[in-house]
Amino acid sequence: METAPTAGAGQAWRAAIAPQAEVQQSNAVVNYVAMGLIIAFTAITVVNTLAMSVFDRRRPHPPLSQARMIPVVAAELSEGAP
């Protein structure tokens, strides 16, 4: 028949797992820092990709004034075209 654990056994158990708990805590901090870096680099990559695609699409098209489309649009507006 087993007897109930004594108060001394509980203290010994806590003392035995204390170093392991400290190691787990430090590992958790390292994991959070690594995850933060991964998320930060992913966000930078997404923003960089979006910026490059926007700037890439803007380059080949000249502004409306250079394409001489503003007078055509103004003429259509003065005629009352829908």
Rank of each mutant, 00 (worst) to 15 (best):
11 Q>E: 13
81 A>E: 07
52 M>C: 05
38 I>G: 07
18 A>S: 04
14 R>L: 02
79 E>Q: 14
71 P>E: 02
47 V>P: 02
44 I>D: 04
60 P>Y: 00
71 P>N: 02
36 G>W: 00
43 A>I: 13
28 A>P: 00
34 A>G: 01
45 T>L: 14
20 Q>G: 10
33 V>Q: 09
18 A>G: 01
52 M>P: 00
7 A>L: 15
76 E>A: 10
76 E>H: 07
56 D>M: 07
61 H>F: 11
11 Q>P: 05
19 P>C: 02
10 G>V: 14
45 T>Y: 10
4 A>E: 14
76 E>M: 14
81 A>L: 12
66 Q>A: 15
27 N>W: 00
4 A>R: 13
70 I>Y: 01
42 T>L: 15
39 I>S: 07
10 G>Q: 13
65 S>H: 09
62 P>D: 03
14 R>F: 02
6 T>N: 13
54 V>I: 13
26 S>F: 00
55 F>C: 09
71 P>L: 01
36 G>Q: 06
75 A>H: 01
21 A>E: 12
49 T>S: 11
10 G>H: 13
11 Q>A: 15
60 P>G: 01
27 N>P: 00
35 M>T: 13
3 T>W: 05
48 N>L: 13
11 Q>W: 08
57 R>I: 06
73 V>Q: 04
66 Q>C: 07
24 Q>L: 13
22 E>W: 02
3 T>P: 07
44 I>T: 11
